[in-house]
């Protein structure tokens, strides 16, 4: 019986020989199946990479397999254009996420830690926004941004995205703040700390990982937005990555080597971000914070 128990759980450290044994005894078909899913998911990217090294005649002759010589200069060409988009995206998503974290953590502190008349009502006012689809606010927001004279500026993206992004971030952070021991804040108050100090010196330092989670989810959202920048930014020099890649692909559509190189370069920044923050990422998605 005990054999069943130890074998079905991958929780013990095993030697290489034991691992090979496990593989042969039952893991192999699972690994093959999972591998197929991975390969299927990655196949389009591999295809993009193979095509990205071709000139137009090479593509016409042999579209999918490798053709020599390899034309790495496609990347140089694409890089010059896409770099501008990446820079814009970093500015816009970066400023947005800072604004979101600041506003959301302040309001989460007020809702989660402090006591004041109207707390419930105000909280439900924010909660109700979760039900408003972005489709409903799209047109009036567009008219508003236009009337404010923000068209073709970074602010056309940053300000509305701070407003919409902070709602979800606030929910995550509030749930987390509420889970902190109240005694921490009471002790600080007794020692004469103001609420601002409680916020800055206790709540924020304790919630670094949650702030990281909220930040990453927010960045993913703004980074992938296509429709809103498409509407509000007509100057190519200000386009962020997602609408930028779309415009770029439309412009060079039949020069497949260039378009594929551009798409691949555009994928790099978030992959880098992920590599440095994957711990928060996985923790955030599995911690139950998503359940709100």
């Amino acid at each position: 019986m005990s054999a069943v128990v130890t074998e079905t759980r991958g929780q013990y450290r095993r030697s290489r020989g034991e691992q090979v044994g496990l593989f042969l005894r039952g893991d192999w078909w699972r690994i093959v199946l999972l591998g197929l899913f991975l390969v299927g998911g990655i196949a389009p990217l591999v295809m993009a990479f193979l095509i990205s090294l071709k000139t137009i005649p090479q593509f016409a002759r042999q579209p999918f397999a490798l053709t020599f010589p390899l034309h790495w200069e496609n990347y140089g060409f694409a890089f010059e254009i896409v770099l501008e988009f990446i820079k814009n995206s970093m500015i816009v998503s970066g400023v947005t996420v800072l604004g979101v974290l600041l506003l959301a953590s302040l309001s989460a502190y007020a809702f989660g830690i402090l006591e004041f008349p109207g707390r419930q009502v105000l909280f439900y006012l924010v909660l109700s926004l979760m039900m408003v689809p972005s489709a409903m606010t799209l047109i009036p927001s567009f008219v508003l941004v236009k009337d404010l004279g923000l068209m073709n500026t970074y602010w056309a993206m940053i300000l509305p995205w701070i407003a919409s992004g902070q709602v979800f971030a606030m929910f995550i952070l509030r749930t987390f703040f509420e889970s902190l021991p109240k005694e921490l804040f009471d002790a600080a108050r007794i020692d004469g700390a103001s609420e601002w100090q409680g916020y800055w010196r206790i709540a924020l330092p304790l919630s670094k990982s949650m702030l990281g989670v909220a930040a990453i989810l927010n960045i993913l959202g703004t980074w992938n937005n296509l429709i809103w920048p498409y509407l509000t930014i007509q100057k190519q020099a200000l386009l962020p990555l997602t609408p930028g890649l779309w415009a770029y692909q439309t412009e060079y559509f039949t020069r497949y080597g260039l378009t594929m190189a551009g798409l691949l370069i555009g994928s790099i920044p978030l992959v880098l971000l992920f590599i440095f923050t994957s711990r928060w990422f996985v923790a955030g998605l599995t911690s139950g914070a998503i359940k709100v």
């Binding site: 606010t137 927001s141 606030m170």
Partner: peptide
């Protein structure tokens, strides 16, 4: 509760202008 209202103020300014008003 003035500290709490001050902390909520920026959030609600943004929500009023860019969420409630358009909705």
């Amino acid at each position: 509760g003035r500290v709490a209202y001050t902390m909520l103020a920026p959030t609600f300014v943004f929500l009023l202008v860019f969420m409630y008003y358009p909705a």
